[in-house]
Design a protein around this nucleic acid. Sequence first.
DNA 1: AAGTATTTTGGCAGCGCTGCCAATCGAGTT
DNA 2: AACTCGATTGGCAGCGCTGCCAAAATACTT
Lengths: 335, 335
Amino acid sequence: MNLHRRLVTLADVARESGFGESTVSRVLRNQGSFSKRTADRVAEAVAKLGYVPNRLAGSLAGNAASAGSQLVGIVIPSLANIVFPDLLRGLTGALDRTGFQSVIGVSDYDPDREEALVAALLSWRPAGLVLTGLEHNPDTVALLRAAGIRVVEMIDTDGPGLDLVVGFSNRAVGEASAAHLVARGYRRIGYVGHDILRDLRAGKRLAGFEAALQGTGYGLIDREIVAEPSSATAGRAALDRLLDRTPDLDAVYFSNDDMALGGYFCCLARGWSIPHRLALFGYNGLDITAAMPQPLSTIRTPRLRIGEIAAERLAAGGPAETIDLGFALVAGATA
Amino acid sequence: MNLHRRLVTLADVARESGFGESTVSRVLRNQGSFSKRTADRVAEAVAKLGYVPNRLAGSLAGNAASAGSQLVGIVIPSLANIVFPDLLRGLTGALDRTGFQSVIGVSDYDPDREEALVAALLSWRPAGLVLTGLEHNPDTVALLRAAGIRVVEMIDTDGPGLDLVVGFSNRAVGEASAAHLVARGYRRIGYVGHDILRDLRAGKRLAGFEAALQGTGYGLIDREIVAEPSSATAGRAALDRLLDRTPDLDAVYFSNDDMALGGYFCCLARGWSIPHRLALFGYNGLDITAAMPQPLSTIRTPRLRIGEIAAERLAAGGPAETIDLGFALVAGATA
DNA sequence: AAGTATTTTGGCAGCGCTGCCAATCGAGTT
DNA sequence: AACTCGATTGGCAGCGCTGCCAAAATACTT
């Protein structure tokens, strides 16, 4: 390709159209005043030369102290769990509509990587930053404060936020799940989960679950926690281990629907009837679980909506606040 | 936050450390020569002032004609299908390692949106662009050529590419799937798929499948195609309709594993034994399908690897070429 | 000690665009 | 016809950083 030829610049368009650079710039941004004829001439020149504006220069020149570029930085912990693509979908959808572009970083649930990513994203002078969860390194917070930009923390509302917070209470999710199981008469309840040291939200759900269970007088009988990320395979294997150890459970709470689906397959393979021999309860409201012969009992979370609201609030401006979007318990047929 | 105060600039660091701007710049980029003592002093000043480099300015100043910014633009058709998060995971992982940041756009399988996104991404003067598939608007191609940057087209190798192409032959996937089913003795074969008008790769797989089937003398008996995106729910409903209409099929080929999983649930709900009453064959090699009591027979695609190779080639430079990463047929227990 | 490499350093002109402000143009006023 | 006022337009100084090149400091020779 033409690595040799200089790219077309605003000055070229100005020369070609016969107007000044400022005028062309105004027309291109549809800002300030100019006549219809001018706009047409400029459009013509742009088309003829194949001009593509250079936003690097634009953002640098524009008020660099305040919201510089039309970029929004997004840091998510993972892409392996469907939750995050869903959040991204909501974010990019709403962001596109408001003319923003998304720069994305994946932290692998590592606070240090999150910090590095925040620093890297900040160097593009984004208009705002979107993070996941409320827990960050002190240095990350310092960077954020110094940058003086809007920040959204998604998913978790169980604690104080830096600026905007959009999500729901993971603790309340755990409590609601426990209440449901107890109300249905289950007493010998176990837990199958993935790495709570890394996925802090899963930890908060479990804490809420256990607390609610204690409150009713029944405790958690046994638990099986895997170190790996959540997956159906991990869920199936973990439930197998749990049942080998403690066969007389009557219900199992899973850290999420991926794990629960693995649990479902485990029961199918053992020929155990659900929910009579064993009840299953998940978390997330994955599409797949609705297609199961027996729909999974789970908690449906407003993932897409969280992304959308986060993006909209970021674009709209407004006071710092915490927005709790709640969740819905889906009774299903497995618990 | 401090929207009022000017952000710290390189000049501030220079003043604070007592060196010139060029020296500080060199130290910060670890390029050119400077003494250890200088580096320490600069690091000190950076830490003291909390300096965050402005990459907008950096990229603008750096050779703007060639690879300007350290950004790579990525356009994917969707985030709803797990394939794309997997590709993204490979891309962002490898890109991070080479110091690039990813700007992402989602086209919703719409070539016009793809074009708009390419134009928008190009305005950040990315070092390269990553697209999905080989089919683009003529204007999109023109934009790409004029930009003079590296382009990678992912997933599909069935046709000529613009520059780098990383993927596998979707047509060959279809052919291999058909060959497997025929070899196993299935003769009355149906197809359940999602929107081939939008997902062109699914169309190519189906074309390969049908061609191979014709070649053996057996044709495709019946097909059920839904207009919506693929999902387990859609797969289950579609298989139900197909079987109501043509009950005597002995095998069904699905457009992907999501659909196939829905088909599996459909059989479970009907009490049909798999693969004796009906055999199922999918595509993608989703993790979930490996956890099923009967692992799904499917094609495993190197999604992560495609993303990684794409990113690496983009970063490394090198000649235009098509890299076929192949695929693996997973025999499974459903066909 | 004088001279020649080599390493370190600083000055300054842009990169392409926008903000500011002054200049120009028309049309309406008196 | 002289004058006012709003609509258009152009000139130019940066935005913060890097590339280029010359200057300064240091090291090595003979």
